[in-house]
């Protein structure tokens, strides 16, 4: 049971690089990499809001709940 971050999929759809996205939402490329590689333990609403704003998507487009038990 986990939450997957499909940021790379959305970034590919919007044709935006990690460096550019990090600059636009004002976080470090290292932190964006943590998020993109599913290493993050939590995400702030402010970060999620900035991501949705820049990528023009909904939180559900970035986050996905995966239930291993099924």
């Amino acid at each position: 049971m986990e939450i997957l971050v499909n940021l790379d999929v959305m970034m590919a759809k919007r044709k935006i690089s990690a460096t550019e996205l990090a600059q636009r939402i004002d976080i470090t490329p290292a932190n964006l990499s943590i998020l993109k590689n599913n290493k993050a333990k939590a995400i702030r609403f402010s970060t999620l809001m900035a991501l949705c704003h820049e990528l023009q998507c909904q939180p559900g487009d970035i986050l996905e709940f995966v239930d291993d038990e099924e």
């Binding site: 976080i27 932190n31 964006l32 943590i34 998020l35 290493k39 993050a40 333990k41 939590a42 995400i43 702030r44 970060t47």
Partner: peptide, 8 residues
């Protein structure tokens, strides 16, 4: 701290 470090 570990949790905070991995909060983006």
């Amino acid at each position: 701290k570990d949790e905070l470090d991995y909060t983006v």
